[in-house]
Design a protein around this nucleic acid. Structure first.
Lengths: 329, 329
DNA sequence: CTGAAAGCGCTTACAG
DNA sequence: CTGAAAGCGCTTACAG
């Protein structure tokens, strides 16, 4: 492997000068610069980033922590992050917690030791140890999806999105709405979306029944199972709509309903959140909410870059959303 | 940031000993080890990976080069890679070429300069400069999806998969089959799948017409457009089935067909390749081929790990596939 | 405009 | 069992 010393020798200058030429720092005579660049070209020399990083304390790498690598939401966000970061010459070091909270903390530390310049976390929960760890590593940090105290956070407007969706259902004439949520460990999805649902239902005179409330785990299967449970527990008095807090669960619910011969939306309306590509092509197409995940990723990357440049950045950002009315309602 | 020197000082030993304790290399008295580990715990010390990597020439990072971050295929493969690698303590440095061939080469070099221990490339084409670059960087290397000469390659069995699919169509009574392929720059998808189609059609007495052959770009839209073109060019003599080389294009084709009032599969059968989740939930569900992408990623990671351990590894691996018969045929 | 020297935080022969 | 020293490949005051 060619090093800066090899280049220096061949160009008859010190490695100091090579470094300056390469980084456009300080004065280098045009002559020397040309000689150096020519040799760099010829040899295909690339500076050793570990050495550089050891010296400068910057690595050109941003750590990204995902709850799951294989969901469309994650992919879109990472896509947005990467688009912005790649343009600035940054690379992404990717980690996947597989929804294990311990790993979130572990990876934050690990990324620090790998000298990443900053971290973006797609957050799924909020807890003290997490906050503490983020404070400890003292790196430019950005959270997406949850409001982490004292951490720059980009949050989806879960409350209003959920409220809008519920309202829409009610104004379409549905007062009996089943709800498939997720664990309350996830404040954004598990608490905010449910709270908005309850608030609107109460305000608008909707009917909430305990056995119409299910709790899934984000998977299509869990949507299917919860729908089954809800219908079985309902007897004659059935809901006329079901609101699942994610598209995948909504699609699972639809599967069960179709199997049981329900017509959607005539017998039962279905809505989800996420605007997955699945939601568009499933039949009937699913009414859902688009959170513009890619844009969230882009914005997160831009904010992180601003932080790297020591620009002042606000602590909280609320993202926009859009209701997509389709055939399932 | 705590360094090995801080730990050494506090433990009253040299940093040599700390290093030995941390890496379980050489002798360290039980006493010293305990003292060191306690302090490591307390301080949450993590070795600086840049320094380590500079010294040892290993980084614990594997570079992954994707053609597109936002496709299900890529995601599944990366998922498989990550599952295996994370277990062994490796991280993934992710790069996305956005289907730009130049970037493939650029990123290989870049990853080398970042001291990755190995590279996995989801290959989309084969060209001399690429092969040359791979040879130049001289790193443990693995290609998935294309057969790269002299590079360890994991390839899908595109020929037989495509042949099986075509055969199945013919045995269902379809002799007039339209085909939506992609550019021949991509040998696996653009050449092999088409070749098998042509071979089987010829052998089995199928009807191939030039204006029934379209070329898309992997996108849903292109499937839609190619289907439109094909039907418009066909006049009265229409195909009775369409084989798109990817699920997304097949789904685009389905969209157009449905819009035009075709019944699927009665008026027109549709098949794709990829076993995307879309293919399962679209209506009617799409007959397709499952390439077990996640498993491919796992196997790639395992082979790379074997190479890192200097184990001998064969040069070519053919992956298996599975035909999934569903309602679109 | 240029270079010698120090130092980033590790590991690893080598010597004891 | 332990430590001093060298060195990985860079950058950056400092001096000229």
């Amino acid at each position: 492997m060619t090093t800066i010393n090899d280049i220096a020798k061949r160009a008859n200058v010190s490695r100091t000068t090579v470094s300056r030429a390469l980084n456009n720092s300080g004065y280098v005579s045009e002559e020397a610069r040309k000689r150096i660049m020519k040799i760099v070209e010829e040899t295909g020399y690339m500076p050793n980033q570990s050495a550089k990083s050891l010296r400068t304390k910057r690595s050109g790498v941003i750590g990204v922590i995902l709850p799951r690598l294989s969901t469309e939401t994650s992919t879109r966000v990472v896509n947005g992050i990467n688009e912005v970061l790649a343009k600035e010459g940054f690379q992404i070091l990717l980690t996947d917690t597989e929804l294990d909270k311990k790993k979130e903390i572990e990876y934050i530390r690990l990324l620090k030791s790998r000298h990443v310049d900053g971290i973006i976390l797609l957050a799924t929960n909020v807890n003290d140890e997490l906050i503490q760890t983020i404070r400890d590593v003292d790196l430019p940090f950005l959270a997406i999806g949850q409001d982490l105290p004292e951490v720059t956070s980009l949050v989806y407007d879960d409350y209003h999105a959920s409220a809008d969706l519920t309202n829409m259902l009610i104004h379409k004439g549905h007062h009996k709405i089943a709800f498939i949520g997720v664990s309350r460990d996830d404040p954004s999805v598990g608490i905010m979306r449910e709270q908005a649902f309850r608030d609107v239902m109460e305000r608008e005179g909707g009917v909430i029944k305990d056995h119409w409330m299910g709790t899934g785990d984000f998977s299509i299967d869990s949507g299917y199972e919860e729908m089954k449970k809800i219908l079985r527990a309902s007897g004659k008095n059935r809901p006329r709509a079901v609101y699942a807090v994610t598209d995948r669960m909504a699609i699972g619910a639809m599967e069960y309903l179709k199997e049981q011969g329900y017509r959607i939306p005539e017998d039962m309306a279905v809505v989800g959140i996420g605007a997955s590509s699945l939601s568009q092509y499933v039949s009937p197409s699913l009414t859902t909410i688009d959170y513009f995940n890619k844009k969230a990723g882009q914005q997160a990357a831009e904010l992180l870059l601003a932080k790297l440049k020591n620009e002042k950045v606000e602590e909280k950002f609320e993202l926009t959303y859009r209701l997509i009315l389709r055939d399932s309602v």
